[in-house]
Design a protein around this nucleic acid. Structure first.
Lengths: 348, 348
DNA sequence: CTGAAAGCGCTTACAG
DNA sequence: CTGAAAGCGCTTACAG
């Protein structure tokens, strides 16, 4: 390994001067140093720098589930933005487990310059650890009840939930249900709130059995959909509040031979690669995951560059993508608004 | 930050003794050191260790596209296996770009203990860099022409390609096409070879216009499918050799209102979350991505623990998952084998 | 602008 | 088994 002493020797200066050159200061022997570095193919040791100055040039990304396409896209966005700076990315997958998360944050907090975190739930005590360590943290997609003092990049979950409710109510549905994520997560809570509040505003109160609180996982979506179908009065439409649960819900409907949208309408949160190819194509609330990741990284880079402004919270918009999985309820006597007519039937 | 000197002082021993205790050696003051560590909540600085002994406890994962669900699952498998050891994961996304890959490997090679790499193509010169650095590397899913001397975890691509050909030929298809990945990647080359060789063996030679070499991306699959459909004599069945291209192919068939499997049969490589919910459900060649990642990490951990055996290459099996997207050709006069009858129609 | 020197937190021969 | 000491590759006051 070639070290700074080698460069200094070749250039005929002290290591201090080489170090200064490296940090962009004016030095007399700049040209000699430059060529020495080139000749030796020298690159400074990140480790030594880290030990001396506490800067590790590493950023930790902590997500609940990397196989969820949303988080995969988020990570891609973060990774591509990270090339703007000298930072490397350490990836941690918590499997939605708060214990694992605490453990990760605990070990990572002294070994990275910053953290991007999508916490497993809102009760986590991680901010204390991070605050004590004095490094910047950006919340991604999810915050904590005590998350004040940190940047965050969220999504207008309430707006998305409300848009889903509006769409279904606009088609004439009265018996609308929600399969929500855990209410102790930001998106679980907010999508639930947005959906039910909008329904309420339009005079529809969801009965308790139409409010299914699940776990953001495929199996949960499957289970809750079966439960809804087993009701004496099943809903005529359902909003499933994340992609994994939507897959489970679709499988349940498929297994029970319930036809969509004739017997039940379904709208998901987060788009899926094949959503447009399903029969019928799946109507969803969409947002830009890669952009969300890139923005989080940008906020973090700004903090890392030393900016000391007050914490910022960015909220991205959602978008209703009307495809074919929602239609007026079969036994509807109400006149559906025009909105529901925007359907495109898919085949493959 | 609490350092080893603090622990030594509190325990009344030298830092050398604490260091020995930490590395599992017998020391007299073990109990005093243990409680000092507990009281101070001490954890050794990875950075200082790295500088002193060259061990970084970091492993680099370099993949072409983290948003490809295959690689997302691979990374999950690696991550969960990494908890077996003290290693952290640095993630790099190359976007299938050999230049970016070379750059990543170049900077990473002196800063990590080992590398898991899925190279962008087989001509890469990265092994030289890595060999010079003397750190272990495990090829994942893809190797290099000059990849000798390194461990690898691959998949029986030829077997998978052959199984696809067998399935289609067994149904009575003669006009079978392939949309392959780049022939300078391991899976691109091997799936192509396995498919065409098996067809050949059964007396079917693919004409040039049925051999479409593409790029493993959705747009490529879309484009090549359109090209196949535009032929004077389009194929009656097509094998699409990765998941992203399969999505593109399905979109093209959908857009052109070509009905599957009546007008054309399609079989993909790699399963998709919604594959079983399509109409018809998609027949695919499947393999276990998370397992592949976990195995790669296990091989790497073994090398990192100092094992010096000769390089190992593990090849995982593939599995034909028959769903509903393949059927005998419409104008077939041949008697299809029983194989093609295993169909299950899906709805949603 | 420059160099000598100290020091970041560890590990490891070396001598006892 | 143990401690004093050197050193990993840098950065940064300090003095010139």
């Amino acid at each position: 390994m070639v070290a700074i002493t080698d460069v200094a020797a070749l250039a005929g200066v002290s290591t201090a001067t080489v170090s200064r050159y490296l940090s962009g200061q004016q030095v007399r022997a700049a040209e000699r140093i430059r060529s020495a570095i080139a000749e030796l193919d020298y690159s400074p040791s990140r480790t030594a720098r880290a030990l001396k100055s506490g800067v590790t040039y590493t950023v930790a990304i902590v997500v609940p589930d990397i196989t969820n396409p949303f988080f995969a896209s988020v990570v891609k966005g973060i990774e591509s933005m990270s090339r703007q700076g000298p930072y490397h990315i350490s990836l941690y997958n918590t499997d939605e487990d708060p214990d694992r998360e605490r453990q990760v944050i605990g070990t990572v907090v002294s070994q990275v310059d910053g953290i991007i975190l999508a916490p497993a739930n809102e009760q986590d005590q991680t901010p204390d650890l991070v605050r004590r360590a004095g490094i910047p943290l950006v919340f991604l997609d999810r915050t904590l009840s005590q998350g004040d003092g940190f940047d965050s990049v969220l999504v207008d979950n309430e707006g998305g939930g409300a848009a889903a409710a509006q769409h279904l109510l606009g088609l004439g549905h009265q018996r609308i249900a929600i399969i929500a994520g855990p209410l102790d997560t930001t998106p679980g809570r907010q999508r639930f709130a947005g959906f039910t509040a909008e329904a309420e505003r339009r005079g529809v109160t969801l009965p308790d059995e139409y409010r299914r609180i699940s776990d953001f996982r495929e199996a949960g979506g499957y289970r809750e959909t079966l439960a809804l179908l087993a009701l004496a009065k099943p809903p005529t439409a359902v909003f499933v509040s994340n992609n994994e649960m939507t897959i489970g819900a679709l499988k349940a409907l498929n297994d029970m031979s319930v036809s969509v949208p004739a017997e039940i309408s379904i709208i998901g949160f987060d788009d899926l690669a094949l959503a447009a190819l399903l029969s019928p194509p799946l109507t969803v609330i969409r947002r830009d995951a890669a952009e969300q990741g890139a923005l989080a990284m940008r906020l973090l880079l700004k903090r890392l560059s030393g900016v000391r402004e007050r914490p910022r919270s960015i909220t991205l918009d959602t978008e209703l993508v009307v495809r074919g999985s929602c239609a007026p309820p079969r036994d509807s006597t109400a006149t559906p608004s025009h909105e529901g007519a925007l359907r495109k039937k898919g085949r493959s």
